[in-house]
């Protein structure tokens, strides 16, 4: 009984933590039309898992390092030349996913449940995971405190922002690395499906009842939080898969709020 409540409490805390830290990253993905970027990073995180298994290194750390290297690669390539970033993301997402799968299959002894990484298991969150989430939260808080206005200006028009003196590339790179770090970390904890959903769906839902960027951020956090609570509650009472229940709860918020007309 005690164990039972503990894993539920951990799941709740972890879920709420992830909802809170994914909202600030998610709103800018929505405003900058980069929702595909998160998916690419999530796919390439699988490459990190297979590399970690191959090299027998710590999985969490390997995934984080690989994701951040790939994020940096996407950033550099998209700033240097020619290929549209959409095409680039498509190529990177699927080639790194394929490479990850091939690497895993080469290791005969290893049986790995890919489904586990797609959907994760929020009920298996450990104390270490909670600390990592809290640490990421602090990083994100500091970054946004310092660069909120810069991020808004970059979203409006990167060239104008640069002429006006914003360090566009530095801020963008920091944002992308934070995003990669957060996705890699939470993918191992709650799976690709849940994390990409928590990034995109709450901000999309919040748009209908927000008339400033700040309100949209706060409402996204609130919707993410309520989705985690609602999803876990439903999962506990009706014996449903928790990750998927959370995603559906967020989608329900989105659907309901679509009925409302946008305030501006």
């Amino acid at each position: 009984m005690i164990e039972m409540t503990q894993f539920l409490v951990f799941a709740l805390l972890g879920g709420i933590g992830l909802a809170l830290i994914s909202a600030p990253l998610g709103v800018f993905m929505v405003w900058q039309r980069q929702s595909y970027f998160g998916a690419t990073l999530a796919h390439s995180a699988l490459l990190g898992i297979s590399l970690g298994l191959l090299l027998q290194t710590d999985l969490t750390i390997t995934v984080i390092v690989v994701s951040m290297v790939i994020a940096w690669g996407i950033f550099t390539l998209s700033h240097s030349k020619q290929l549209s970033s959409d095409t680039l993301l498509g190529i990177l997402a699927h080639s790194s996913l394929a490479l990850g799968l091939v690497l895993i299959s080469l290791q005969n002894s290893v049986q790995i449940d890919i489904m586990g990484y797609l959907f994760g298991d929020i009920l298996s969150i450990t104390k270490t995971d909670l600390w990592l989430i809290a640490f990421t939260g602090v990083l994100i808080l500091l970054f946004y405190w310092r660069h909120w206005r810069d991020l808004l200006n970059i979203t409006l028009n990167p060239q104008l922002a640069q002429v006006e003196g914003t360090a566009v590339k530095t801020v963008q790179l920091q944002y992308i690395l934070l995003l990669a770090f957060m996705i890699a970390l939470s993918m191992k904890i709650v799976g690709i499906l849940l994390i990409t959903s928590l990034l995109i769906i709450p901000p999309a839902a919040a748009r209908r009842i927000s008339d400033t960027p700040e309100k949209m951020l706060l409402i996204s956090m609130l919707i993410g939080l309520l989705s985690v609570l609602g999803g876990l509650f439903a999962s506990y009472h009706f014996d449903l898969p928790p990750g998927a229940s959370i995603v559906l709860a967020a989608t329900a918020f989105f659907a309901i709020l679509q009925l409302k007309k946008a305030p501006m």
Binding site: W31, L156, R207, S210
Partner: peptide, 17 residues
């Protein structure tokens, strides 16, 4: 330098007056 770009496109999902 004050710069006036030719046009700027702002995604409708960004609430901004």
């Amino acid at each position: 330098v004050g710069f006036m770009p030719q046009k700027i496109q702002i995604d409708p999902t960004l609430p901004m007056t």
